[in-house]
C-alpha cells in the first residue's frame, strides 16, 4: 500500500515537472482548518429514553474538525493530507461485560448511558480540478477529491450515565443480576483495530486576497466494516457485547462521514 501511494506521488511530481503549475498566483502550499457537520444518521440502540418513553427524537449533529495541507502539483491536481478529529456519541447505550465471579456476586457488569466517542483519523487525498473540462485552475474553483482515511476510535462516558443507586433503572439491570458500572471505561472495552475508509468530496474553493482560501464542499464517505444501514440491537449476551460496541462505534463514526457539509479556511503558506 505504502509503495503504491509513493508511486502515485512520484508520478504526480513527474507530471508537475512537464507542465506549468501556476498554483494560485504562484502560491501552491495551503494549510486548511475546516469543520464538517453532518446529521447523526445512526440508529438508536435503545429505543427508550431515560424516563422509559419510546419514540424519542433521533436528531442530532456530528461535528468534525480537520487540519489539512494541500500542495498544488499542476493546474488540475492537488495532493494533500489531513488529520481529523471527530466527536460523537452513542446515546443511551447498554453494554455488558462478564465478571467471571471475580469480585462480586454478579455474573455481569453493565454500563448504561451515553458513550462519548473520539475518533482520530489521518488521511491522504488527491483533488482533481477539471481544467480541461471546466477551465478551472487549481487550487481555486470546483474540484473532486478522493481521500483515503485511517484512524482509531475511542469511547468514554458521555454526558449522561445511569446511577448505580437509582432504583428507577433496576428494570434494566437484568433483574438485579447485573452490576451497574458508573463509567464506560470500567467495561475495559478496547477497540484497537484501525479503521480504514474512503471519502469522496466535491466542492468549490475561492481565494480572498492572495493569502486566504475559502472552501465549501459536500462529502460522502464510507468506513470499511461499517454496517450503518442494519439494525443492531443491544446484545444481552455479554460475550458479544464488545463486538457490538465495536460495530456501533464504527457505525456512529460512519455517520460523521456518510454525508456532510464542510467549510474550511485555508492560508497560502507559499
Amino acid at each position: 500500500m505504502k509503495r503504491n501511494l509513493l508511486n502515485l506521488f512520484f508520478v504526480l511530481i513527474a507530471l508537475n515537472g512537464i507542465t506549468q503549475n501556476p498554483g494560485y498566483m504562484g502560491s501552491k502550499w495551503v494549510v486548511y482548518g475546516s469543520t464538517a457537520i453532518s446529521p447523526a444518521l445512526n440508529n438508536r440502540y435503545l429505543d427508550l429514553d431515560r424516563e422509559g418513553n419510546s419514540s424519542v427524537s433521533n436528531v442530532s449533529i456530528n461535528a468534525r474538525f480537520d487540519i489539512s495541507t494541500d500542495y498544488t502539483l499542476s493546474k488540475a491536481v492537488v495532493f494533500g493530507g489531513s488529520v481529523k478529529h471527530i466527536t460523537t456519541n452513542i446515546p443511551y447505550a447498554y453494554y455488558t461485560v462478564d465478571l467471571n465471579n471475580a469480585i462480586s456476586p454478579y455474573d455481569v457488569a453493565s454500563y448504561f448511558g451515553d458513550v462519548k466517542l473520539n475518533a482520530n483519523f489521518a488521511s491522504l487525498y488527491i483533488k482533481f480540478y477539471p481544467f480541461g473540462r471546466r477551465g478551472v485552475i487549481a487550487p481555486v474553483g470546483n474540484y473532486n477529491k478522493f481521500e483515503l482515511i485511517i484512524g482509531m476510535i475511542g469511547g468514554k462516558t458521555g454526558g449522561w450515565s445511569s446511577d448505580f443507586y437509582d432504583p428507577e433503572l433496576s428494570r434494566y439491570n437484568n433483574n438485579g443480576e447485573s452490576l451497574i458500572l458508573p463509567e464506560f471505561s470500567d467495561l475495559n472495552y478496547q477497540l484497537d483495530e484501525k479503521v480504514v475508509g474512503l471519502v469522496y468530496t466535491f466542492g468549490n474553493s475561492w481565494a480572498f486576497t492572495d493569502k486566504l482560501l475559502f472552501d465549501f464542499s459536500t462529502q460522502f464517505g464510507w468506513l470499511i466494516g461499517s454496517n450503518i444501514f442494519s439494525d443492531i440491537s443491544p446484545s444481552d449476551n455479554s460475550g458479544e457485547a464488545e463486538s457490538t460496541y465495536e460495530q456501533q462505534a464504527i457505525d456512529r463514526v460512519q455517520g460523521a462521514f456518510l454525508m456532510n457539509f464542510n467549510f474550511g479556511i485555508g492560508y497560502f503558506i507559499f
Partner: peptide, 9 residues
C-alpha cells in the same frame, strides 16, 4: 480569484 488565477497563468 478566477480572474487572478487565469491572469497569473
Amino acid at each position: 480569484s478566477s480572474q487572478n488565477s487565469n491572469i497569473y497563468y
